[in-house]
Write a protein that binds this DNA or RNA. Structure first.
Length: 274
DNA sequence: CCATGAACCTGGTCGC
DNA sequence: TGCGACCAGGTTCATG
């Protein structure tokens, strides 16, 4: 599923065709897809249902209306794309009809994805850390935040309430680029390494956005278009292949409950724990 | 405070 | 070809 770069890519692709149009109907196909509202809770009066903007916060696609927002979370396998056809694709969990006649299809094989209705962004902001590409994410902040806790670094970077938008792929990429073992304890990482980590997170996310995200196996979005960052992955998914930096075989272990790719030669600057 | 595992779902892959 | 085990880019909740 999409992490920050993939969600941003979806937002960039959909925005122009959504803004200034109206939602005329929202139809749940999978009963649980509308997390906290019913279709009729949206006001279809011509002013309230006009889409004002489409943005991203954390891994949410935010559709802005005058008095509320719709927040779409794609979770693992969700996809959001336009369709002009009357045929509803397999695994569609919701259909949003627009006044343009197009439909916004929410397709989600594993059905984990949800759509939320909120008055504004507050409920999302309070449960999420800073945007890694935003100005609140500074080296200083990261250093202090890591030192205030004693947590496994991978688990911490995956924690959306700590920092928003990172997922399994980009955490592995960022830790490898920084020479940090994913089992490192947050407050044991030296300042200079934290500085590198900060820069690498921003560099990797920016490059991934520029490449329109990563595609692994089945993940595709945007009407079949897929991202090009897959070819730039340095560590993720490269089990058994030589490390680009040192040539040692890349290993796969489990950290924070997630499959984790590491080069034990390059990622050895961590302190504690194995 | 932190770590772990299960739950939510479906489908693909791998080994036998 | 079939079947079971295991895995998957995420998040939340219960438990120790």
């Amino acid at each position: 599923m999409p992490e920050l770069p993939e969600v941003q890519t979806v937002v960039n692709a959909l925005k122009d065709d959504l803004v200034a149009h109206r939602i005329v109907h929202i139809k749940p196909i999978w009963p649980k897809v509308l997390y906290n509202f019913k279709p009729n809770d949206i006001i279809f009066d011509g002013k309230e249902n006009l889409i004002r903007d489409v943005t991203r916060r954390a891994k949410f696609i935010i559709i802005h209306f005058q008095s509320y927002i719709l927040a779409v979370h794609l979770r693992m396998t969700g996809k959001l794309f336009f369709s002009a056809s009357d045929i509803i694709p397999k695994h569609t969990t919701a259909v949003i009809d627009l006044d343009s006649g197009e439909k916004l299809i929410f397709q989600d094989t594993r059905k984990f994805g949800r759509i939320y209705l909120y008055p504004d962004l507050t409920p999302i902001h309070i449960r999420h850390g800073p945007e890694p590409l935003g100005k609140n994410f500074s080296t200083k902040w990261l250093h202090q935040a890591l030192n205030e806790r004693k947590r496994n670094i991978k688990s911490l970077l995956l924690d959306q309430s700590f920092i928003a938008g990172l997922g399994n792929i980009y955490v592995d990429e960022s830790l490898w680029a920084s020479g940090i073992h994913p089992c490192s304890i947050s407050d044991a990482i030296p300042a200079i390494v934290i500085k590198n980590l900060h820069g690498n997170i921003q560099k990797i996310l920016s490059a991934a956005i520029a490449a329109k995200g990563t595609t692994i196996i089945n993940f595709s979005f945007l009407n079949g278009q897929s991202g090009r960052y897959a070819s730039q992955l340095r560590i993720f998914g490269r089990y058994g292949q030589p490390c680009i930096n040192c040539g040692r075989d890349i290993e796969k272990i489990k950290v924070a409950g997630r499959g984790t790719y590491i080069c034990t030669n390059c990622q050895n600057t961590y302190i504690t724990k194995r």
